[in-house]
Amino acid sequence: MKIMQVVQRFPGGLMLIPLLLGALTNTFAPNAGQYFGSFTNGLIHGTVPILSVWFFCMGASIDLRATGTVIRKSGTLLVTKIAVAWIVGMLCVKFIPGGMIETGFFAGLSTLAIVTAMDMTNGGLYASLMAQYGSKEEAGAFVLMSIESGPLVTMMILGTTGVAQFEPHLFVGAVLPFLIGFALGNLDKECKAFFSQGTMLMIPFFGYALGNTINLAVVLDTGLLGIFLGLGVVVITGIPLILADKFIAGGNGGAGLAASSTAGAAVANPVIIAGMVPAFAPVAPAATALVATSVVVTSIVVPILTAFWCKRVNK
């Protein structure tokens, strides 16, 4: 059976298909973890420990010895993406004072969902697009962009916009596995080679665990809204990224457009942040569903737009 080939045909399939299976488990057998207990329960509800290992491996995969061009390109895209998410977060504080809209078409939309969908780029999608349509330096720019992985940037944005307050040690705890992996990977190339393998290996496991935090009834309720959120991410972050790529990083705008997606790992952030700040617990399920839909939408739209843009510019 060609299971892996089928999974990889879908945009972000390695993450999204296990996530869908987990959502089906949680929707139709919500007590399966407690019923089976032991390791099965750990797999179903082990989002945080599984993600902590993934963050460690991600840190180990990043090489400190990046070229100046790569640093310039990735730094420009990284700062622009975070800055746009922060500005949008500030606007959300003014227009969504309660944290989440509870009625009407926009019911379920929250500052947490919007910021989470916008502040992380799908690094794998970006790298594959730039390998096809850009330069080697542009493809390598995903290295620094991996800093966005995890809840740290989202926590910083939510904290500085006044949406939430985080104790300093929580910031340290959110980034410590990443930093330890980063240190080991750069001190020993064998550690780097060994732990880097885990970045892909862990994706289906935390995807399934994340899926078990989603009820498909919530996804159906927020599906159309999630599509609009995904399109909004491409437009709102894409335009500044294109301009920054052209006028600061010296590109043709293609790299900026390729970075205007929502990362698959962003789906985990609402649950992780709700675990740190219980006030977000009522918002987290809808935010998770919305971000998951945004991941799917941007994974489809961004490659199409990037291909069209790069072919037209190169011509």
Rank of each mutant, 00 (worst) to 15 (best):
Q8T: 11
Q8W: 05
R9Q: 15
R9K: 15
G12D: 01
I17K: 06
L20C: 13
Q34F: 06
Q34D: 15
F36D: 04
F39A: 13
H45W: 07
V48N: 11
P49T: 07
W54F: 15
F56P: 03
T69R: 13
I71M: 09
R72Y: 03
L77R: 01
I82T: 04
A83E: 03
V84H: 09
K94S: 11
P97Q: 03
I101P: 05
G104W: 10
F105C: 09
A107I: 11
S110G: 14
M118S: 09
G124F: 02
G124R: 03
L125I: 05
M130S: 07
E138K: 10
G140E: 07
L144H: 00
M145W: 00
V153R: 03
M155E: 01
M156Q: 03
L158Y: 05
T160F: 14
I180K: 13
F182Q: 11
G185Y: 02
C191D: 15
Q197H: 13
T199M: 12
G207R: 03
N212S: 10
I214R: 12
N215S: 08
D221A: 14
T222Q: 12
G226I: 10
L229Y: 08
I239A: 05
P240N: 11
N252I: 04
G253M: 09
A259F: 02
T262Q: 06
V271Y: 09
P282K: 14
V291G: 03
P303F: 13
I304R: 15
W309F: 11
V313A: 11
